[in-house]
Structures are given as structure tokens and as C-alpha cells.
Amino acid sequence: MKIFRTLFFVTVIFITAVNISFGQNSTLKINFEHYANGKKIVLSDSSYNNIFGEQYFIKKLRYYVSNLKVNGQAFTEDSLNYHLIDLAKSTSIKLPLTAGKYNKLVFMLGVDSSRNCSGIQQGALDPAKDMFWTWNTGYVVFKLEGTSSSSNADRNRIEHHVGGYRFGNNISQFITFNIGEVVLKPDSISEITINVNLDRYWDAVNTIRISEDPICTLPGTLAKKIAANFPAMFTVKPE
């Protein structure tokens, strides 16, 4: 019977040890809310105007958020580190954290260059997620597809596949947020919301006109021009 007793104690010790080392029993939920013209974005059905008066509809809006750090604490596990925000599917990220106070959030809008050139990836980076260039290896970082009567492309489409990881064309960038003071209690979930303002997509550091650039499907000058506007789109929602 000694063996059963030993086994019992080993199990108890193991479970306790696991609980201690995985003490991240609270969750920080980061919600992404997407706006245009001050309204929450609805796919396909609603139209919006950019600052140049160009009316457009949105069919797809997706982008990669990775390399998250909350108060300097990084997440190395892939499923916690790479996230595809997709307006049609998932627009929030759940991070396991220890209870405490947090005030700073950093993430990369993009995908590390190493993940672009080290073969097949899983999870959010699975090429089946339709964010992968099949003929010129690399990830689309930000995908905006829709239509606009201002677009002179085939069937009035807007097709912005913004990406690029090679030197000189890299558009992945870190964005830092001051999130005030978020208090995470033990075994509880706290939420913060990041506003994503699509009005700034067309007009921030650079101006992007649908009439001039309805299509962007390659890394390079135009992709970099659009990507320069990304940081202005993301702000923390005030409490």
C-alpha cells in the first residue's frame, strides 16, 4: 500500500507545484473596436466616407498583433504571442497574467521577419488563414478589402494587402499604449479596449486616396506609405 500513498503524495506535490509556477490565474482581455466616421464598423452593409469624400464599403478587415508585452512582461508561447484580429471572427485577445497593477501595453502590428522565412507556421500564422502571399513568401500584415465607386479597379474593388518583411520593405512596427492603471484581481478578468479608427487609415502621416491607390498587393513603396498611418489608428479607449 506504500506505493499508493507515495503516488498520492507525489500527485499532490505536483499539482501544488504546477499551481505555483502557473500562478497567472487572472486574465487581461484586450478588445479591439473598429470605427469609421465615428460609427462602429459593420462589414459589407454600411458605407463610410474618407476625408476626401470617397465612399467605401468594407468586406474584410484583418491584421496581425504580436509580440505583446504588458508592463514589460512578454509572452513566448505562440498561441499567446501571435493573434489575427479579424472583424468577421475574433476581435479580442486574452492574456493570462498574475494579479497586480498594469499601466503599459506594447504590441507589434505585424509578424517577426524570422516567421516569414523559416517555413510553415501554425496557429494564427497558419497560411490557411488567408494572410499569406503564396507566390512571394511572406505575411500580409494588414488586409483591407472592400468596394468604392471611387475605385477604378476591376469591379470597383479596394484590395489593400499591406505587408513586407525584407530589409527596406519591412512594415511591422511596435505600438506602445499607456493603459492608465488597470488593476487585475486574483482569478478575475479585466478588460481594456483599443479603438481602431479607420478614418486615420486614409489620412494621417500620409494621405491615401482610393481613386489613386485602390490596389496594394505587394511589399514596397505604397505598402510602406499606408503602413506609416497605422500607429495613428490605434488609441486606448478612455475609461
Binding site: N116, C117, S118, G119, I120, T134, W135, N136, T137, G138
Partner: peptide, 16 residues
């Protein structure tokens, strides 16, 4: 030379 790794090459013929 658009494909940088042998593992991601088949994605192209599968989906083209």
C-alpha cells in the same frame, strides 16, 4: 525565387 522555404512552396500550387 519568390518562395523562401521548401515548406511553404506547396501553398502556391494548392491554391492557384
Amino acid at each position: 525565387g519568390g518562395i523562401n522555404h521548401i515548406e511553404v512552396q506547396p501553398v502556391h500550387p494548392f491554391t492557384s
